[in-house]
């Protein structure tokens, strides 16, 4: 017993959700000379963009009337929709079926006399939840129109709402008018870029490429697939293939569209890879911009010195998502007993878990989550158990306590990379009364 390794704990500073959002001053822009957190360095080899969480007090889409508890509940509801959509898409891909294959027959394409694309057909039903939590500000077209786009590593296509609208959701600021942009360029139906779309069609009268993207949670967009210029305050990139959506459904956080960061060939990183920035990017996400800020970086400076790497895995049927091989989870320094197949992707021999910017709460297969939950509860016998909250099932009443000890939770990846999580990444407040929950969930919830 003397030689048994001591459990590893760390201190959680108890600070429940405020009764209302405090005013948070805009963080001084530590990126230096840039405006709003964008700069170009190293002779165009690095691009840095500030990201903002949709519920942050700094967000232009923030709802000042919503309480932090309401915002959290809404966030978890969005998360359920997104996780379900990813699950369905992945399972379909394992059978060689793409989610978009399910809707193609229900949509009819027609072209108006003036060449404007129109779409008719039954609309998809279901949850109309936003597909992402963080957004960037960028310029579209020439001259650039400032817009906000949701970033999403679970999507490949860049798109924004365009006039004329067959059906557009309400967005912050004016909808992009391609007629006012000198850099807007239609893509022909026979262009290679058009054929790279998962789902495309052709407007016969104008020989222009049409795209459609369905997100599986009820959200979708369809319109012209075009080339356009994107500007990031100091850096402008022309000829970016993107969707100009005339029929868009879903609550994309009032943003103008979606900035696809997925692994497919039409995502922004993939298109940049063909240009100048080496197909390397990174992001850092913060909840409330209190210490440090969220940012998205492309190019050589996107890789910090102390980075631990693990191989990216390929899913032969679905190249959108970024998979890694999670080989273990430790609680308090002890590896959990989890069967190796817990994190396998499908029956094709591939394995891995998805690293996603747009899903909030980590979902684990029940055979992995069960041991995690049990080990965490066993390591916290003195904390007053408080049942569950939303998709969380392990909560504690920490009211009246300033600091508590919780076991260290680490994720271990192939190649030795380890994410030793700060306490705030897995024990989170859910109300103003001091209730905290273990912020993991079973992937089977809501299945």
């Amino acid at each position: 017993a003397r030689h048994r390794r001591q459990p590893r704990y760390q201190v959680l500073h108890v600070s429940p959700l405020p009764s209302k959002w405090q005013e948070v001053p805009r963080v001084a822009d530590s990126l230096g000379q840039s405006e709003k957190g964008v700069r170009k360095v190293d002779n165009s080899t690095t691009l840095i963009l500030r990201l903002t969480h949709r519920d942050s007090p700094l967000s232009p889409f923030a709802n000042p009337k919503a309480s932090p508890r309401e915002l959290l509940k809404n966030r978890l509801a969005r998360d359920e929709a997104r996780a379900s959509a990813i699950s369905v898409r992945t399972k379909l891909a394992a059978r060689g079926i793409r989610a978009n294959d399910l809707v193609v027959e229900s949509v009819n394409y027609t072209a108006r006399e003036q060449g404007v694309v129109d779409f008719a057909g039954p609309l998809m039903s279901g949850l109309k939840q936003g597909s992402g939590e963080y957004f960037i500000e960028l310029g579209v077209g020439s001259p650039p129109r400032q817009t906000y786009m949701v970033i999403d590593t679970g999507s490949d296509i860049i798109w924004l709402q365009c006039t004329p609208c067959v059906d557009c959701y309400t967005q912050s600021g004016p909808i992009f008018d391609p007629a006012l942009s000198s850099s807007y360029e239609s893509l022909a139906c026979t262009s290679p870029l058009c054929s790279m779309l998962e789902l495309h069609s052709c407007a016969a009268q104008t020989n222009s490429c049409l795209y459609q993207v369905a997100y599986g949670d009820g959200s979708f967009t369809q319109g012209d697939f075009v080339l356009e210029a994107l500007s990031f305050r100091g850096a402008t990139m022309g000829g970016i293939a993107m969707g100009c959506g005339h029929d868009n459904e879903g609550l994309f956080a009032s943003a103008a569209g979606l900035f696809g960061l997925g692994g497919g060939p039409l995502s922004f990183p993939s298109q940049l890879g063909n240009l100048l920035l080496r197909r390397v990017f990174s992001y850092c996400l913060m909840d409330r911009d209190e210490s440090g800020f969220s940012s998205l970086m492309f190019g050589s400076a996107a890789v910090p010195m102390n980075t631990q790497f693990t191989p990216l895995l390929k899913n032969p049927n679905l190249n959108t998502y970024y998979y890694v091989s999670l080989v273990g989870i430790s609680v308090g320094g002890s590896m959990l007993s989890i069967p190796p197949q817990a994190f396998r992707m499908d029956g094709n021999g591939g394995g891995g878990v998805i690293v996603d910017s747009g899903t909030s709460v980590t979902r684990l297969a029940e055979v992995a989550y069960g041991p995690l939950r049990s080990a965490f509860r066993e390591a916290t016998p003195d904390l007053p158990f408080a049942g569950g909250f939303s998709l969380f099932d392990t909560c504690y009443n920490l009211s009246g306590q300033a600091n508590v000890r919780v076991p260290l939770v680490s994720l271990h990846f192939e190649g030795g990379a380890e994410m030793a999580l700060p306490t705030s990444n897995y024990v989170i407040p859910v109300d103003t009364e001091g209730t905290y929950c273990l912020a993991f969930a079973s992937a089977e919830i809501g299945a």
Binding site: M286, A302, V303, L312, I354, G358, T359, A420
Partner: peptide, 30 residues
């Protein structure tokens, strides 16, 4: 399907290296 969500990613810089086909984590890089 298991997914590592953004609450667990907070405070880490998540690096996607499409050239070397690897993904990286760097703590305290926001």
């Amino acid at each position: 399907v298991s997914i590592i969500g953004n609450i667990q990613q907070q405070g880490f810089r998540i690096v996607f290296d499409g050239v070397s086909s690897r993904l990286g984590f760097a703590a305290n890089q926001c």
